[in-house]
Design a binder for these strands. Structure first.
Lengths: 167, 167
DNA sequence: CCGTATCCATTCCGATACTG
DNA sequence: CAGTATCGGAATGGATACGG
C-alpha cells in the first residue's frame, strides 16, 4: 500500500525529511547562517515570490528552526533568526557545499574555503569518525536499534531488502 | 524579480538542493545505504506509488547518485546501487538521524547507535572541525570565496543581508 | 520483476495587486 | 517592511490498470 504522509514512518531520516526536504528551505537556511534575517532580503536575494517565502518561513518557524522576533523601535520590522535547533544544522550547511564542490562543480578548483575565525585553520571535509579518530566508511558502519536488532550498511555485498531502522 | 529555477544560482547549496531536496529521495537514499536495491523492495517498504518511485529513481540515476545495473541471469531484474557520488552522502545519512534524535524525538533515549563494524566504537556526533581537532561553531566560521571576498557566519550579531557566497 | 499509461484531485508556484 | 489575496497554469501525487 502506498502512503501519503511520513508521519507514521518511525524513521529519523523520514522525520528530518519532513522538515527539511524543500528546495527553498535549503537556501533560506543557508542565508540565515550568513546572517540574513529580513523578509525582503530573503525575497530579493533568493528571487522567491513573497507568498511562497511567507509559506516557507512559516513552516521553518513552526518547525522551530527559525524564530520570528519583532525589531525594537520599529513596529513593522521583523527578524527571522536561527534557533538552537536551526544552528544545529551547521554540519549540514558545511557538508553540502563540500559535496557539491566534489561532485557538481563545472570547472576549476574549489570555489571557496571555510576556516575557523579563531585559529584560521581550514575546516576538514565532513567525515564520520569514532572518538579515537577512526574514519568509518559507509561499508563498515553498523547500526543497532534500541530494541537490539542490528544490521550493517552493506550496499555492495548485502542482500536487497535489508533495512536498518524501520520506515 | 522571482526565479523559477536554481540553475543560475551560483551556489553550491542551491545545486545540492536541486539534486537532493525531495522527501522521497531522502528515504530512498537511506534505504540504498541499508543495502536495498530492488524496485519492488523500495515500493513496498517505503509505501510509494510505482510511478512516483520510477520518477525519483530516474532522477537519482540522472544525478549519478544511483546506478541502474541489470542482474545477471534474469533478463527482467534490475538493481539500483549507490555510485561513488552517492556513497559520498554518507556523512549526511549519519547526520540526519543524529539531528532528528536530538530535536525531533518524542520521548525516551536515543533509539539507535551507529558503530564501526571494525572497532565497535561509537561514531561521534557530526561536527565541524579543523585538522588540529578544533571544533568550529556556526558563529565562528569564516568562508572565503575563490575571488577573495570574505565574510563570517554571524547569525547573532551580524547585519542582515550579509551573504557569503552568491545565490 | 520492473516498470508504463492514464486519470484525476490536489498542491504548488509565479505573477500581480494591494495593505497597515 | 512584511506581508495577504487572488488567480491561472503547471507540476505532483496517488490510484489503478496493464505489459514485456
Amino acid at each position: 500500500m502506498t502512503r501519503s504522509s511520513f508521519a507514521d514512518m518511525d524513521c529519523p531520516i523520514a522525520q528530518a525529511a519532513e522538515q527539511l526536504a524543500d528546495k527553498w528551505k535549503f537556501v533560506i537556511i543557508r542565508n540565515a547562517f550568513n546572517g540574513m534575517r529580513r523578509f525582503d532580503d530573503f525575497a530579493e536575494q533568493l528571487g522567491v515570490a513573497s507568498n511562497v517565502l511567507t509559506a516557507r518561513l512559516s513552516e521553518l518557524v513552526a518547525a522551530d528552526i527559525l524564530t520570528r522576533v519583532p525589531v525594537d523601535g520599529d513596529g513593522r520590522a521583523v527578524e527571522y533568526r536561527l534557533t538552537a535547533k536551526g544552528h544545529d544544522l551547521f554540519p549540514m550547511v558545511i557538508f553540502l557545499p563540500q559535496w557539491s564542490d566534489r561532485w557538481l562543480k563545472k570547472r576549476g578548483g574549489p570555489r571557496f574555503e571555510i576556516t575557523s575565525a579563531d585559529t584560521g585553520e581550514l575546516v576538514q571535509p565532513m567525515q564520520v569518525t569514532t572518538a579515537s579518530g577512526v574514519v568509518v566508511t559507509s561499508k563498515r558502519a553498523q547500526i543497532r536499534e534500541g530494541r537490539g536488532r542490528s544490521s550493517v550498511y552493506r550496499d555492495i555485498k548485502g542482500p536487497s531488502g535489508q533495512t536498518a531502522y524501520g520506515g
